[in-house]
Amino acid sequence: MSCKVGIPRALLYYKYFPMWKAFLEKLGAEIIVSENTNQKLILQGASLVVSDTCLPVKVFIGHVLSLSDKCDKLLIPVVRSTSEKVYNCSRFLALPDLARAVVPGVPPILEIEFDYSRGKSYLYRQIYSLGKNFTINPFKIKAAALYAWETHQRYHEITAQQHLTRLEAIDLIHNGKSITIKETKNDGLTIGIAGHPYVLHDEQVSHNLIKRLKAAGVNILTPEMAPEAPDSNGNGHTQFAGLAKNYWESEEDVVGAGDWYTRIKVDGIIGIMAFACGPDSMMMSLVQRQAHSANIPFMSLTVEEHTAEAGIVTRIEAFLDMIHRARRRNEQCV
């Protein structure tokens, strides 16, 4: 009987799920992903941790709780660092310990730590120790790891090339669902959204921000659509050239994206951040200052478990109205 491995649909899921899935399925595990986030799940998660924990971690704990009786093992990797001197937020480093401490009846947790500064051999040992749970054959583990890495690369390529959101790309990779190319209306606005995938793409957490904007006829750009390397015009997901050096692992979604949006002159930037998010509290302020100096309208949305959908809707409408009005006024002046 194959081992059922649970993967919470939260936090790093959005960035690495295709990779994890490829690795584990190659080794013969059965993957169970938790249900979509819903309000009940958020509240259950929030009730287990102290109140000033950030929303994404509360959501994460909710997902772990919902998986706890459905699977034999839980996969909670720790991503400390994937490039030199860039570390992940403190909360990510404690996820397995946090889940063990606060979730009652949590199944055994498969931990794996990615740490760039500790070199390749550490990474290989970590991968091997994860694979050992499923097979004793090291060659099989190696093959699975290589396959997983390929999948991960493909996932990144297609998101950037086809301008897909993370969720659309995950769908494309796993279900082969063909994506209808979005029509780009020439008179429509282009809005860049800065924010972490686990806030932005979680429809419950972001209150369907992307869908709402699309329904309003707006072209949206999300951080993962940025090209990895700058193109000849310098339009790229650069390493924070305009703003600052990267400090946190996942902040390219905010600062890198903000930088990209200001350089390609989008019509407006929406920064969406979770309440009590440590890194964002500073990085979003940098993006806001940059947008301000580039004269691009910026709106900051802070979400938490009590955020009302109506409030978000009103603010989005107002923001779009303001941009439209400014644009009409400029046209009249010309």
Binding site: V50, T53, A101
Partner: peptide, 9 residues
């Protein structure tokens, strides 16, 4: 961030 986690644990 670190102290919040510590407090949960």
């Amino acid at each position: 961030m670190p102290e919040g986690t510590a407090q949960c644990i």
